[in-house]
Amino acid sequence: MTVIDPVLADVLKPTAQARGLPNAHYTDPAKFAEERDALFGSGWAGLAVASDVPEIGDAVPISFLDIPLLLIRGRDDGVRVFQNICRHRGMILVEEPRKIEGAIRCPYHSWCYSTQGQLVATPHVGGPGFNSHEDIDRSTLGLIEVRSHVWRDVVWINLSGTAPDFEDAMADVIARWADFEQPLYHGGADSTFTLAVNGNWKLAIENYCESYHLPWVHPGLNSYSRLEDHYNIEHEGLTSGQGTLVYRQLRDDDGQSFADFANLDAKWDAGAEYLSIYPNVMLGVHRDHAFAIILRPDGPGRTEEYVHLYYASPETDDTLRKRNSEQWKVVFEEDIFVVEGMQRGRRAPGFDGGRFSPAMDGPTHCFHKWAADRIAHHRATE
């Protein structure tokens, strides 16, 4: 029988009695390294969006938890993720975002790979003028592919390669938003922005999934979508978040709004939902637009948030689209001081992980339980 760490056991208690994860899980590099495998490696994590590589040959290098990865759209129009290293000597292949016109060429010894990952050229590998060797089997030396899946334009990756198929792992959340299983159109350059936060990635997830803070942190939003208009969403081991019964569409001076997604249930006429998909993706859906936020941790105390907005139609009014992006940027920026304040608070030695409101903090506690359970399982199987 596995004996669980008593600190993690406290996290797993019912919400009214539980405590949150202790300080070290927000400040200690050793705990951050443990969470890379326990929380990110074994399941499906968000890396980027497919819209980052919109055209064939587009390639974007990404450092994810210190792992050098390459997001690329191949000649077959498929989006893939590879380790961004040459199989010869481990040299980084692509340093900056660019279009691959021919092959991916290693700058060290010019080994070349197709955009689908096959090793296609090995100059002088058998000696000057000899580009092959009987002991170099190109078919076994393609780029190392990272298992990936695209859903809601998010490129999800499974670093361990051992997670259930994405559709099985995410079946419940896919079913919850079945109405929105239809084309998404990225709003373009003015519909994406990045926020740098001096705080642990988990604090961003915890804050996003609850509505408790709305009256004090988001007074503008709370003026029409009030705290009492919200409800909690909790799905053990997968996601938690909040929904609102009052969503107000953005309109221009002539009263025009964005086109709605097709054939939505009537509950979406005035409703919206916001989910934290564990570990690091935050999604929102509305009748006329959606968004995805992908968190990329940079050590225990810093996080970059990549925000993308989507619409039901590729044709959107420029002014209205920009206003929508600006409006959401204000909302998300309002959360930064909270995340950074909690991060500084994790340096207080007397803080024991905190307590949860049984009525309001269920979604946050749901996330803590998921993290504690994954960490305990990881320790038991090491």
Results as ranks from 00 to 15, higher is better:
Tyr208Asn: 12
Trp151Arg: 09
Glu206Lys: 00
Phe261Lys: 09
Trp156Arg: 02
Arg248Cys: 11
Pro279Asp: 05
Ser223Arg: 09
Arg147Val: 01
Asp252Val: 03
Leu159Glu: 08
Tyr212Ser: 07
Asp190Gln: 11
Ala189Ile: 00
Val154Met: 02
Leu238Ala: 10
Gln182Cys: 06
Asn222Arg: 06
Thr194His: 10
Asp269Thr: 10
Thr239Val: 13
Asp253Arg: 13
Pro164Asp: 12
Leu250Cys: 01
Tyr247Glu: 07
Arg176Ile: 00
Val281Pro: 08
Asp229His: 12
Val154Asp: 02
Phe193Ile: 06
Trp216Phe: 15
Pro215Gln: 04
His218Cys: 11
Lys202Met: 12
Ala204Tyr: 12
Ser211Tyr: 14
Arg147Met: 03
Ala175Arg: 12
Gly161Ser: 08
Ile205Phe: 06
Glu181Asp: 15
Ala163Ile: 07
Ala169Gly: 05
Phe180Asn: 02
Ala272Gln: 12
Leu214Ser: 12
Ser191Cys: 14
Val197Ile: 15
Gly188Gln: 09
Trp156Cys: 05
Ala204Phe: 11
Ser148Trp: 04
Asp252Ser: 02
Leu275Ile: 11
Trp216Ala: 14
Met170Asn: 05
Glu167Asp: 13
Cys209Glu: 06
Asn158Asp: 14
Tyr274Trp: 15
Leu245Asp: 12
His235Arg: 12
Ala272Ser: 15
Asn198Gly: 15
Thr192Glu: 13
Leu214Arg: 06
Ala259Cys: 01
Ala171His: 14
Glu210Asn: 07
Ala178Pro: 05
Pro215Phe: 03
Tyr208Gln: 08
Leu250Thr: 10
Tyr274Val: 02
Asp265Leu: 07
Gly237Ser: 10
Ser276Gln: 14
Asp260Leu: 03
Asn158Ile: 04
Glu206Thr: 06
Ser225Tyr: 00
Asn280His: 13
Gly271Leu: 10
Asn207Phe: 03
Met282Gln: 14
Ala163Lys: 01
Gln242Leu: 14
Asp254Cys: 09
Leu283Gly: 03
Phe193Ser: 06
